[in-house]
Write a protein that binds this DNA or RNA. Sequence first.
DNA 1: CATATTGCTATTGTCGGACAATAGGATTAT
DNA 2: ATAATCCTATTGTCCGACAATAGCAATATG
Lengths: 242, 242
Amino acid sequence: MDGSFEPIERAPAYMKVFRAIEEKISDGSLKDGAHLPTEGELCAQFGVTRSTVREGLRLLEQTGLIVRGAAKKFFIRRPVASDIAAAASKSFALGGVTFSEVFDALATLYPEAARLAAKRLSKAKIAELRAVRATLQSAADKDHEATVAGAVEFFQQIAKGLDNRVMLAMLQSLNLMIGESLRHVISRAPKAKDRILNAQKNLVDAFGARDGDLAADWMAKHIADLKRGYDVAKVDMDEAIL
Amino acid sequence: MDGSFEPIERAPAYMKVFRAIEEKISDGSLKDGAHLPTEGELCAQFGVTRSTVREGLRLLEQTGLIVRGAAKKFFIRRPVASDIAAAASKSFALGGVTFSEVFDALATLYPEAARLAAKRLSKAKIAELRAVRATLQSAADKDHEATVAGAVEFFQQIAKGLDNRVMLAMLQSLNLMIGESLRHVISRAPKAKDRILNAQKNLVDAFGARDGDLAADWMAKHIADLKRGYDVAKVDMDEAIL
DNA sequence: CATATTGCTATTGTCGGACAATAGGATTAT
DNA sequence: ATAATCCTATTGTCCGACAATAGCAATATG
């Protein structure tokens, strides 16, 4: 003992409520899908008032650890990849990242994702990719909405097929960030649909042949092609995505 | 007019407060660094009570859009890469991702990051990497803490040198997720420090020579080596990171 | 009997006021 | 001039209250 004291733990009560519940979720005491006690119940358990409990709940809510079910009751949900992707892409947007940063990441990550996909995608998943492509193919040429949806969905399915939640979340957040702007770009790139279909065909074939190098190569071309669309549409790549 | 009505916009007031402020931040009305009005002020402006305003503030707080400065006043801060990385890695942990998923992502992303780094890293940054390595080298062999810090810092500096906030956030979140466990692993891998130093030397040399392929290659080896450490330490890769 | 309507109850959303704790600045004492 | 003290604005917490709402039970209607 040196006679000195540690600074005492001093945090607002609502923060302690937040952390206490978070802790119980992460250690499994509160299981996924279980529903939280009512606010009144929590007041009693923590010995604080409803206002305080509610502030803690707002923190949990925004973290995505609890979601409102029917009857407005909260129930526990461990965050899944898509939650993380949504939160991250929103933060990136608010943080003012630029198109060029997003594309840079896209061009770096997706070819490698394609390489992995060639090794890992199940036959069923590859068939699904073919189906996504077929749907796009049968859409009207002028249906830009369908073109965008088809392009993004294709990416999405590749990401899901990797069977890795970390990579899924990262790739999805990129998808979300380009999705919006892609709509704008594709509507003024005349032959976008054909080129996308072509890239998709080559990718699916590479996946089917389990040829990682080839898949990575085509994906790189695909991304470069999309990027060209932005140049054609005269999008300033140094501008923040919005 | 078909005589039917749209469902009216119905969201809790605290949510509207949150979105209103968020909107003002994203459109630039509230600039980075500005400080938020006091709670009383906000009550007056929104015409709601403090409890309601405070719930909205908790949402903003957790989103990372406002932070407490001195005097407990909130000020605006657009999220930066490290915020996003911290939030994401926490969510991943709560979501129960496994070591193998993290390593898988690490092995996929970092070699490509190294490839980019070889092209992009400024001379100053490369010098900094050498310095990081030198610090690690001069640390005591038994100082596991320093070894971990040196290994992670090296990754960190590469990520920063890419000059891309999206990739930075992604790489940082991976760093955060392995950081903890690495501490545990390195302390029981006898020659870890030497192997890390060796990998770092080869990487720095590759960066200096602007040789992307070589850099990617050494980075892949470096990651594989770290992974071996987990096997030696008998870490179950299918277990959730904690 | 089946279905639609109504009322009941538990819970959430919002309100208003109250007071202690605290940080910073102004003021006073040394 | 520096240190101790008071003042004030603001946050953190509490209490009590009531309207709005969802789910369920009871009831009416055919």
